[in-house]
Design a binder for these strands. Sequence first.
RNA 1: GGCGCCAUCGUCUAAGGGUUAGGACGGAGCCCUCUCAAGGCUCUAAUAGGGGUUCGAAUCCCCUUGGCGCUACCA
Length: 475
Amino acid sequence: MLRVRFAPSPTGYLHIGSARTFIFNWLYARRNGGTMILRLDDTDVERNTQASIDSIFDGLNWLGLSWDEYYRQSDRLDLHRQAAEAILAKGLGYRDFTPAGEAAEEKPHDGEPWRANPGQREMSKEESDRRAAAGEPFVLRFRVPRGEGRTVVFKDAVYGDQAKACEDIEDFALLRSNGMPTYHLASCADDADLRISHIIRGQDHLTNTFKHILIFEALGAAVPQFAHLPLLIAPDGAKLSKRKHGPVVSVTTYRDAGFLPHSYVNFLCLLGWSPKDNREQMTRQEIIDIFSFEGINRSNAVVNFTDTDPIDPKALWLNSQHLRSLPVADILPGVTAVLEAAGMTPPADEAHYAAVVDLIRARYTTLLDFGSKGRPYFSDDFVIEPAALEKLEVPGARELLVGLAARLELDPEFTEASVEKNLRELATERGVKAGVLINGSRAALTGQAVGPSAFHLYTAVGRDRAIARLKAVGQ
RNA sequence: GGCGCCAUCGUCUAAGGGUUAGGACGGAGCCCUCUCAAGGCUCUAAUAGGGGUUCGAAUCCCCUUGGCGCUACCA
């Protein structure tokens, strides 16, 4: 039974690196018919916030990512304590009564690395039990095998064979002196209890894995398969952090910038993973069908942004590609949201609405463009841009456009073909180039010098509005 | 400091002993064209350095350098 989990600690908004970790877990589960578990690793009570939990749900929901089971570590503290007690009972852990903070100062940074606090590991069971019973605070540590020449090994699905000598692993903590489990213990106890088969997480946990294997073994649990993911880093090579890099690290930034959820998922997938066949734009199903650990590479990926532009240009390009190729119906809800936010109402006629969106989307890169550049298509409240004004200032243009309005009022069809016929006939009659009327039409109808084919514009804007806007340039 | 991981165009990446080192984004240009996009074509730009192994190395090995991670009673 394939079971994977995404286990964020709710100490901040949903980070794009976390979102990517979720996606890779999710892809692996969906690809192989497994179960996707969302588990909030909230054992660090002081740093957890409800806002962070909300942000995780909001981000995941926006991206259209789903999970099959949900847990909170804080609901499972008994399980963690039982696991700790079992390890202590087996003699694989011991109490360390060294007062907090004291040992850290003694840690040499140039000499021998710290492995354990002196005298604690060797303490007799009797003394340990007695002091604990007397209420003396202690941290429970793992008794890492010493003097046996033992090496912990595992095969990572991405990084290959890994090995680390136990002599290089310190006696890490399992339980804090306040009785709360550490990340290592809680995570492993839960992974064992939830029968997680594959742990897919950031490469920053690669060296923690040796400790985790020791815990799984001490618990008598099966050791899961591991797949570590390269990290997402900033152009300066540093880990992405809100303090240092600002909004680029937050999933909401991309939502607010008008990204299509799937295009952002697609972009994230391409950071550290490749289908190896030069494909870039893919549907969700295509990615699920082709996803495998073999396509994940081992070096960290840079999210390409600058101080002036927080968005990776490739993400923008990918968004524009999806924006123009998805079924129109799929992007309509997003467009509607943007229009309403900009104080506009989408056309009541659904088919006409879809046709307009379809006409203009090829030249837009984000949903936000519908609310700005798309204004003339949905509202009468728009400005004439300077470049468009120039088209209207061409000698005779205004008068010709008014003339065209008069002709179109008599056109019973008002189709692209009939409008073109009227326009060209008028141009011929007056002995002017059709371009004057074509460019003038675009300027009059949309207030823009650039945009779709002028003839398409007429049907997109609609008969009444188009004629009114043509007449308006004559005033 | 110790331990571990990583290293191909500016960025994302392909090639895993034999290729003119491929694709994409970005940038530049051309074509198309009623404008702008889109699309098509062209150009720009990379195997960190040094040693091996081999007929042949981006690819395998070693060293150096650089980056990153862990080294907490954070996760």
